[in-house]
Nucleic acid binder design. Structure first.
Length: 130
RNA sequence: AAACAGGUUUGUUUCAUCGCUCUUUAUAUUAAGGGAGGAAAGUCCGGGCAACGCAGAGCAAUUUGCCAUCUGAAAAGAUGGGUAUGUUUUUAGGAAUAAAAGCAUAACAGAGAGUGUCACAGAAAACCAGGUAGCCAUUAUGUUUACAUAAUGGUCAUAGUGAAAAUGUGAGGUAAGAGCUCACAUGUGUAAUUGGUAACAAAUACAUAGGACAAACCUCUUAUGUUGUAAGGCCAUGUAAACUCUAAUUUUGUGGCGGCUCGUCACAAUAACUUCGGUUAUGUUAGAGAGGGUAGGCUGCAUAGAUAAAUGAUGAAAGUCGUGCUUGCACGAAACAGAACUCGGCUUAUAGAACCUGUUUUUAU
RNA sequence: GGCUUUGUAGUACAAUGGAUAGUAUUUGGGUUUCCGAAGCCUACGAUCUAGGUUCGAUUCCUAGCAAAGCCA
């Protein structure tokens, strides 16, 4: 099992991000919102991810950093299930934090896992249709 | 001793597992090493660095503001002193008050260069002030013969104002009054003297009594070229062998040959003008202009160092604080806050701990 | 990262340092109406926060807080 999370797995190009915001589909599971879209790119990993904590919800930079780091940690430890289900398909993901309060590691883990599960189900159904 | 307020310093440590980022070595994923603060914050100042600009002087704009010494590249800071204001204590006094000492604060040059403002109230809110109040004198009228009314003149002692009222008290003086004169006191300016490095203080002579506001304009004095690393430099992508103008030189298409982004030979062709011989354009080269496209990388850039932006998560142990009581265990808490070119200052935020200062309360002597 | 601007009733804006901070609209009450709407009358409601200058600050100064804009 591989738990790495290096720069290739992140979503970094401005064009892709703009495209995601314009054409992506969304799902909410408080306190997070997930935006996703099927795309094609060259990389050994099937997913590109980014994490967003808006400045309007959290004023202080250190609190924003803390939440982002916890979100990244949860994704890093639970991404293998997503990879197995997707196999050859490619997908872009974006997690947005919606709450005003500081979040504990456990609550973040719960809701993020639910979102990841929903994605895996979606992808299975797509494969069956094809 | 406790509580509160202010100031200075400090701003938990170790191990394991899984990770992130950079550098080096190795090599295709191993190894070693580095990886957040006192304010990284605010962006309030001043440098370094970069681009553009620059004969000299002035205006404008912004800026410094008691004195001495020290630190510093400069902004600025530290120490000491002076002055003013506020406050506390002590002394003197019947009291108002005065003097001395301590503490705190000061954007602490100039209001006697000029302009402006001073609501309401008040006779008067500013420069030799002052009325149809008041006080006094003269004249006229009336009569009660010392009063009333009117006019003219003198005067500012008196006045329920106001944040602020033309220096205060006493005496002389006068028709009534007035720094008009005198004594004491207060304050300002000039001159020379003494003490002090200086700010300033003391006492002397002469003049004078001129309200407040410069955090209103302003005057004097000190200093400043403008813009900021999204500056700036290099490369790539690309409409594009594009368009317009100017200058030089002259055509285009097809086929053959050669040393094939080019040259040469042969054949054929369009439009305009024409003196019917041909010439020009559809080309090429160089320079300039206008409009658009691109939205990436490297550098700038670091003994932390990226570019949708790393410095983390989980568990255990020790120390600190709080609560509970089984007195050595359980549970909980640990602030303000996160680098983006860099250095120095200023300002603001800050749990707990240590030290210092002040205030209040309690206890003991 | 750097530069710049602005904060006044719930909302949009006024106010030369001077009396109880004004106008429109919203909201509440009354009037009118068979009942509403509109109209009329009336009330509530604010200077971002903390210091300073001044006799007196929405206004001037200092520090903070919040919001907005620009850069190639």
């Amino acid at each position: 099992m591989d738990f790495t999370f290096s720069k290739i797995e992140r979503l970094c190009s401005k064009k892709a991000i703009d495209d995601l915001f314009a054409n992506g589909k969304s799902k909410t599971q408080f306190p997070f919102k997930l935006i996703y879209k099927k795309t094609e790119f060259e990389s050994p990993f099937p997913v590109r991810v980014m994490f967003v904590v808006p400045k309007k919800k959290h004023k202080r930079a250190n609190k924003r950093n803390d939440i982002k780091r916890r979100m990244r940690e949860v994704y890093r430890l639970n991404k293998h299930t997503l990879y197995e289900s997707l196999q050859t398909q490619k997908i872009d993901l974006m997690f947005i934090c919606l709450s005003n309060e500081e979040l504990e590691y456990v609550t973040i883990e719960k809701s993020m896992l639910q979102l990841i599960d929903s994605i895996t189900k979606m992808s299975f159904s797509d494969i069956k249709k094809n």
